[in-house]
Every structure is written in C-alpha cells, then in structure tokens.
Design a binder for these strands. Structure first.
Lengths: 183, 183
DNA sequence: GAAGATAGTGATTGGCCACTAACTTTGAAT
DNA sequence: ATTCAAAGTTAGTGGCCAATCACTATCTTC
C-alpha cells in the first residue's frame, strides 16, 4: 500500500475525476477523494498544494483521456471515416458517465472561477479545449463546420447523460445514425 | 420595498437564477441570494422550504424563459424559418450568460442529485427538458434529426460561453451561418 | 545498524453556511 | 385608534470542510 509520491498523485487524480464528476468542485470534499484513494485527508495536501490544484489536474487528465479515446478509435482513418469512428467512440463513453460529467464540471467551474475574477483558469481551460478541438479538426479533414458539428453532438450527449435519459429513450433518436451521410 | 410574499418570491427566483448560474448549487450561499434580493437571509426560508426549493424554482423558470425566447423569436414561423429564427435568438442569449449558465448548472446539479440517490429530481428535470424539446420540435416541423441538431448547437454554445471564448474567436466559426442550407 | 529521507497519520482549527427560534414592524380593515 | 395578520429582522446553532501542525512508520544507503 505504500507507494511513491508520483504513483500516489496518479491515483489521487483518478479518484478526483470520479468524485469531482459526481459532486462538482464545491460539492466534493477532499475527505471523499482521500477515502477513495485510501489515504488520509491531510496527505492530499502534501501531494498537491490545494484542492484547486487537484481539480485542475483532474480536468487536464480528463481532456487528455478524451483525446486518447478519439485517437485510438480513429487511428489510421481520416475525413468522414475518422469522424464516424470518433462519434462511435464518444457514444461508447456514455457508459462511463464520470468521464463525460467531469467535462461538464470543468465547464461550469471555469465559469464560476471567471465570475470571481480568476481569468487565468479560463485561459488555461480554453487552451486545453481548443487543443482538443484542433486535433479533432485535423483528424477529420480540417473542416471547421464539421468539427463544430461533431463537438455540438458531443455536448448534447453530455447533457442527456447528465439528465439521465435512458439509452432507449426516444430523445436519443438522431444519434443512432450519427452525423454521417447527410453532408 | 415591502411587498407581498408572492412578489418577493418572484424576485428571489430572479436573483437565484443569477447567483446559481455563477456559483452552482453548492457554490452559492443563500446569503448571496438574499443580499441580491435586498432582504435578510433567514427570510428566504419563510418564502421557500429550503435552498433546494429555491434552486428548483430557478431551474424551472430558466427553462420556461428559454422557451419564451424561442417562442417570441419564431412566432408565426414554421419549419426551417422557425429553426433559423430560434437559432438566432439563442445566439442573442450569449450576451446574457447567466441564462445559459443556469441551464448548465441545472444539468450538473441533476447529475449530482441522481448520484446521491435523489432520482425524483432527475425525473422532473427530464420532464421539463423534454417539454422544451417537444415544443421546439413541433415548431420546426417535427423532424427529430433537425431538433437534435438544433439542441446540439445550443449545448455547444453553452460550453463556449462557459469557457469564455470571446465572440470573435475563431472557434465560433461554423455558427455564423447557422444550421441552415445543408439539410 | 545508524541516519537521513520519504511516505503517511491524528488531532485540531477557524471559517462558512443552511436552517431555526424568537422577536419587531407595517399595513389595512373594522 | 385598535387589532390582526402578514412581512421582515436579529441572534444563534450545529455541522461540515480545507488546511495546518506535530508526529510516526518505513524505506534506502553506507
């Protein structure tokens, strides 16, 4: 159970993704994260300077992870085929609600931070998100409109997952045949 | 400054929309809401049974308000023309960030509530959202795919607003010509 | 096997916050 | 003018939570 600080930090980040996804920044106690890691609460503050740093690490990891999923799914593909592959992969993420919800928590938390004057957080979040957007855009052939559409559908999926519409609900119609054929 | 309980409740709901939009459920104190209303904090608990009830009222109002905007913008129109009108109206809402962010807060809060076993909240939120979806769908001609697309773009706008991308940022390309002509 | 470093804990604290209880003010009808 | 109800306040409570401090246990290297 004893492990290096680096390994511990890693497990903290993973635990934090789950807890923050479900509770949001304010709704998640460091106690809850520590419990999930299996470590005492004060020890988190040896591994990270503060709660916010843990959240930022989890948020960054979340975006990386999302790209990893896209990248794997569309490896070797380009254009429309890549877009379809990534759409399918994102639909697969619906099972892993925590991953999708961590995204949402990032968005609202950034807004809250900005609303109370911490614009640097906004800047770094925008850089992260734009980085993902760009990588996807290039992968699917560079078209801005297609990329926008791709992300738009992703964001709608996040919403439906958050609200808890069951996968067989009629509201999901229009995702069954993804954003293919029409364009 | 003295007013009827009903009027007071109304101003509480309006104030709550702003505060909850910026801080989220956990990040907003009843003190902050009361201050914005211009009333003492304990008095809120005479007007509402608890913080949660205030949030629910604000959330419901938010959805109603959104439909009102759509309805006004697309009055007398149908099909694609209605869709374009509503898209334009939604883009107009970008100025009023609080309105859009209250939506997002609703989504993540519902997820949090569901994660801690309060599924009834999820049910009522889904009813609200589906109601909006249905009204929009009918207005734009009944097609499920078009409606999905419409909402998808809305959700992406929410995200971009949350992250604070300035309106002239290149990421907004693809919204300039809305979801028209292609289909 | 001693010594320094690294991993980890228990106890605590100061601040915030939802909510309650008990009291006061205001307005309007009688 | 008096009264009664509705509008509103001040003071307080109990619980939670991020962060700190002082301490212990376990490796590693010589």
């Amino acid at each position: 159970m004893r492990m290096s600080a680096e390994e511990r930090r890693e497990s903290v980040v993973r635990a934090a993704m789950i807890e923050f996804a479900r509770g949001g920044y304010r709704g998640t106690s460091t106690e809850a994260i520590a419990r999930r890691v299996g470590v005492s609460q004060p020890y988190l503050f040896r591994l990270f300077p503060g709660k916010q740093a843990i959240f930022e690490a989890a948020a960054e990891r979340c975006v990386e992870e999302t790209w990893r999923v896209f990248d794997e799914a569309s490896a070797g593909l380009t254009g429309e085929a890549a877009a379809e592959a990534m759409s399918g992969a994102y639909m697969g993420l619906v099972e892993d609600r925590d991953q999708l919800m961590m995204q949402m928590q990032l968005y609202v938390s950034v807004f809250a931070a900005r609303a109370s004057g911490e614009e640097e957080i906004g800047e770094s979040a925008r850089r992260l998100w734009e980085g993902l957007f760009e990588r996807v855009r290039i992968r699917i052939g560079g078209d801005m409109r297609d990329t926008t559409q791709f992300f738009a559908h992703g964001m709608l999926i996040n919403t439906l997952v958050a609200l808890g519409f069951p996968p067989d609900h009629r509201i999901w119609t229009g995702f069954d045949d993804k954003c293919d054929k029409a364009e």
